[in-house]
Every structure is written in C-alpha cells, then in structure tokens.
Design a protein around this nucleic acid. Sequence first.
RNA 1: UGGGGAAUAGUGUAAUGGUAGCACAAAUGACUCUGGAUCAUUUAGUCAAGGUUCGAAUCCUUGUUCCCCAGCCA
Length: 595
Amino acid sequence: MGIDKDKELSGNGPNGNEERGGERGLDFIRQMVADDVQSGKWGGRVATRFPPEPNGYLHIGHAKSICLNYGIAAEFGGEFNLRFDDTNPEKEEQEYVDSIIEDVRWLGAKWDDRLFYGSDYFGRMYEYAIELIRKGKAYVCDLNGDQVREYRGTLTQPGREKSLYRNRTVEENLELFERMRKGEFPDGAKTLRAKIDMAHPNLNMRDPIMYRIVHETHHRQGDKWCIYPMYDWAHGFEDSIERITHSICTLEFENHRPLYDWFIDAVNDGRTDDGSGPWGKKIHHPQQIEFARLSLTYTVMSKRKLLKLVKENLVRSWDDPRMPTISGMRRRGYSPSAMWSFAKVIRVNKFNSTVDIALLEHCLREDLNKTSPRVMAVLKPLKVIIDNYPEGKVEELDAINNPEDPSAGTRKVPFSRELYIEQEDFMEEPPKKFFRLAPGREVRLRYAYFITCTDVVKDAGGNVVELHCLYDPATRGGDAPDGRKVKATLHWVSAPRALKAEVRLYDNLFTKPDPEDVPEGQDFTANLNPNSLEIVADCRVEPSVAGAAPLTRYQFERLGYFCVDPDSTAGKLVFNRTVTLKDTWAKIQQSQQQG
RNA sequence: UGGGGAAUAGUGUAAUGGUAGCACAAAUGACUCUGGAUCAUUUAGUCAAGGUUCGAAUCCUUGUUCCCCAGCCA
C-alpha cells in the first residue's frame, strides 16, 4: 500500500480548478504578477521562491506561503525555487533542512533541480560587500552591541551621525574587512555596516549591519566562514542571483523593502546595462511584495512557541498530530489537497486576520469525504449477542467502500453471532430524539440485519456489559422486504473477527480561540487543553484494514476520519482521529443538557 | 509625540465609480442503510463624520482603531 503521490493531488492542488481571470478576481499579488506579465516586465518571465530558514519545522502558515509562491509559478508558467535562507549558523540544523524538503515535497510543490542554499552564495556576497566598500558605501565599525543601539537613536529621535568609524578610508575598511574574514577578531568585535543615513526615519536605514563575526560551524559550509551576512544584506542577492521576479514575504518586512532596494541599487550604482565601465553589468533587481501571515484560532504559529511546546514536552514532538506543523498535520491525516483548498479559500491580503479553525476542518472534511474509503470501527465496544443467530456461523456481507465514489467498489465484512457496537449507541432509558438502540427497540446494523434488543446484562456496579438481541433474517443486507423503517443505523464489528486497535482522539491544543488570552503574568501554555489527547486503548476494527500502511486514511463510519499512525506494529494498529464527522446528535445532546 | 501598513456580516473574503456577492459558522426544513454527505431556506456587513458625483465600499478631507519597526535573528 502506501500513498500514491499523484493521487494525493488529483483534481485539486496547484493546477486544479484555477480561477485566474475568473469571476472572483485575482488577489492583489496575482494581479501585480499579471500586470507585470502583460507589460512585459522581465520579458514576461515569472520566478518565485520559498525561502525558509532551517531553524524549525514548517507549519500551516508556511504552507500558505508555499501554495502562494508555487501556485503563482504554476499558474503563470513560471519557475519555483526552494531555497534555504541559511545565514545564521547559530540556529540552523540539518534536521530542519531535511524536514523542510520532505514537507514541501509532500505538499506537491515542485522545484525540479532548483534547490538552493543562500550560504552557497556567500562568496559572491563577499565580493559585493567589497564593491560597496570601494564605492564608499560601507565601512567596518568597532562599536559593540550596546553602543550600536545607543548610536541608532529611537523611534522618535535620530541616531548619532558622528561615529569614529564612519569616516575610515576605503583602504582601511578593505583591510579590516579582509581581516574579519580571516578570523582575526572575536565574535562581536567588529561589523561591516552600510553607510546610509543615521537620521533616517526608518530605523532599518540607519547604517544597517551587513556582516557580523560568528565563529560557529555552519551546517552546510562548515568552518569556511566566520563572518555571516545579515538577512537584509543577503536576501536581495539570493533573489537576484536566482533571477527571482516576485520576492514574496510577510508583512513585517514592509519596513525592510527600502533597504532591500537600497542594497541592490548600491551594487548597481556605476554598473551598466551592457557591462561596460569599471563595475560591470547591472544585477537583477526583483520586486519585494508583502502579504499577511496566517493566524488560526485555537493554536499558535510562531516558531518560538512551537519550539517551547516541543522542548518542554507539552506535546510529543514536532510531528505531534496536535501541532499545526505540516508534519504534525500529515501525521494527523491531513491531505495535501485539503491544504491547497484551504490556502485557496483564505486567499492573501495585506491585513492581519485570524481564520476560524472550522474553515480548515471544512476543507479537510470536504476532501476526505470524497476520497476516504469507509470502514467500520468501534471505539468503545459493547458486546451484543444475537440469540437467534447460529453459533459458529460467519456470513460475509457486502459493504460499499465509498458512497461518494462508485469506482471504489465494495468489500466483504464478516457478520457473526457475537458483535460489538458502540457503547454510546445504546441507552437503557433513551431521552427524546435518541433514535439508537434501547430495550425493545429495533435498529439496523449497517449492511447487515435489523436487530431488536431483548435483554440487558449488567455488572455488579449496574453498568451495562452485554446486550441480547434477536435479528430478522429477512432483512439481510439491511432492507426490510415488508418496507418497515427503522430510525437508526449502527456501525458494528464481528467480535471474533475484529482487529484490536488503539485510537488516539485529538481536540484543539488550546481551550481559547486566542491562546495568548491569559491573565497577567501567565503565558499561552496556561491555555493548553488538558483533554487535547485521549487514548482509547481497546478498540475494534473490521478485518479489512489489516496491514494498512502508516498514513493510510479511512472514514470510520459515523465517527470521523482516521489514519494509521506510524507507531503501528504488525500486531497492533494505532489510529489517529483526523477530524470528526459533523455530529448533529452531539449538538442536540448539548442543547438538551443546557436546558 | 518618528516612519511604514491596514480597516467590508460572528469569521475569512469578492465587488478595480454602476444591483454589496461567495464561503465558513449559526438556525430551520427536505432527503438519507453514516444523526455523514447532499439540497433548500433564514439570520447578518462597507470604522466614523463630512465632501465630489446622476451614482461612492471604491475618489477627496478630517478623525478613530489595529498591526509592524529601536537583534551583531529571519
């Protein structure tokens, strides 16, 4: 078995159901791209990228960005690059690189042979830095961290223009920068800074740091470098080198755009279109565009918070099915196409908003309903004995695999004298609107027979432990020849033939829509939902699922969507509940309890 | 009290000077061998005040509210 990669994305995904030019209009980014293609900017070429820093696992917010960037490339016939923005050796690890590659691939974004690392461009960035020094646009600064902050000024006060180091000669700067690169100075001793304007109203423009000294082994470059470029200095060149046309990032980088442009313009200053002159040919200047990052109710999205949940063992791991990480959602049972349709319905904008998790779950159900094979499983078993059914007899009854997809066919399900049904499907004293099994009441067992409850067996504590029923042989398959109706259809499994399984039920990780809504002095972990995981150890599943591979998805009829967890062993299946079915009865019950 | 952004039903969004639509959520009903799915119906909105215009969510003015920026993180 296993997951068919092509099937995962069929009918949906980046190339399915496009609405470009359709009745709904383009989002503002696609509109810009369309305009640029129309006007012939960059020769009509479109190139996007997804540029994660490998310092954590990807989450659903990154999925939004991947869908945006890859989606645009696919829709406009452009190229999409996967690029690691690995400019800080202190936070980055190979483990994160590997997980990111796996996640982006799973989502279905295709980068072909264009997997890049920002750190592979360090040599060229170094050359650009020397060029800026030669042009008098950059200098080596000896200020320490505190002094840098002090000299920068504040939001309302300009920085100090007068710095001892700002007026160093080109020769001195060249020599010092070379010595920085050679490792002659300790961490923090010197920086290379751009000479812009210490009184600029945008703090980012007050002589931003281009390089800092970090004596640390880089996960990819090893000890080749001890000076590392800052984001602002590095990112534009990464985009430029890869000839990205539309550099899409999140809103908080809006203030950085002037700097993004300044650095590339600074290199281009003195360069020419044909490469004549001392500085050579102009380099490519991409367009930075910002959009709002995703927030979801009942969860947290920042890497810092997700890391805390993992490090403090508040969840099992990065891929805990309760996590909003792509790996967690994959393990939970999410499909790539559900992620794509979610990305499509939330669209992109320039203002912060919080999407209701119910919308995500709607997209999930919509996809799983169409694609998931149905099976019967009993989470909390209650033994049922059919007194008038022959002992030892087993019938193989036909069951439909997916009513939404006739091509999925049918399967055989064994029926026997002893069965299990769901404890919740029986009540000795049923309240109004409870249609399921009760003493003297007739219901249907799905695809099997009508049964009527005749006796209730209890233990010493008064708990119902066993039911005795009679079946009507004429209703085989589930229809009564005399046309009589029942109000409920129950799922069931054969007691001797069912498989044992463990099922893990998940609920929201947090009890409040906004986990940050906490009393003074507490943090978001105060809102952790103590019931976000319920392990049901002794479940029963119909035998057809035997040997199912990890991540195989099913609908357990009447219960929800479930998938096989990698913790499963040959002897014992473990399932994760991905999401419940919509449960009208639960709502009725709730309103009955409330009043 | 500097600079940069943004405001449309409960939520997410569309309408690019011309009927304020869609989806989710909620509610009601129909149908049903999943209280699922499906179908139908209902509730509910342009931040505020002025102005331009035959006509404004859209343009102008003023105000209000929210977000981002003072890492040698990204």
